[in-house]
Amino acid sequence: MAIEGTVVVEIDRCKGCGLCIEACPQHVLDFADSKVNIKGYRYVVLTSAGCTGCTNCAIVCPDRVLTIYRKKEA
């Protein structure tokens, strides 16, 4: 069974720098479609399944807006 993880984005703290998108080995992060946050920045969202909760995105995020969960093996 594949490892399943997920990313919770603090949308209003994201500055739309895109570094997490670049760092995600599964390519499951991208900018939300034509939406901006309270500061006017584009923010990222999980675009599809496949997140393994590897935390790569979270640790390159300069503003630490990504919280990562990974389902423990049953």
Binding site: E4, G5, T6, G53, T67, I68, R70, K71, K72
Partner: peptide, 12 residues
């Protein structure tokens, strides 16, 4: 999946 026991990373 979003449960405290599944948390693997958050801001300090």
């Amino acid at each position: 999946i979003i449960k405290p026991e599944n948390l693997v990373y958050k801001r300090s």
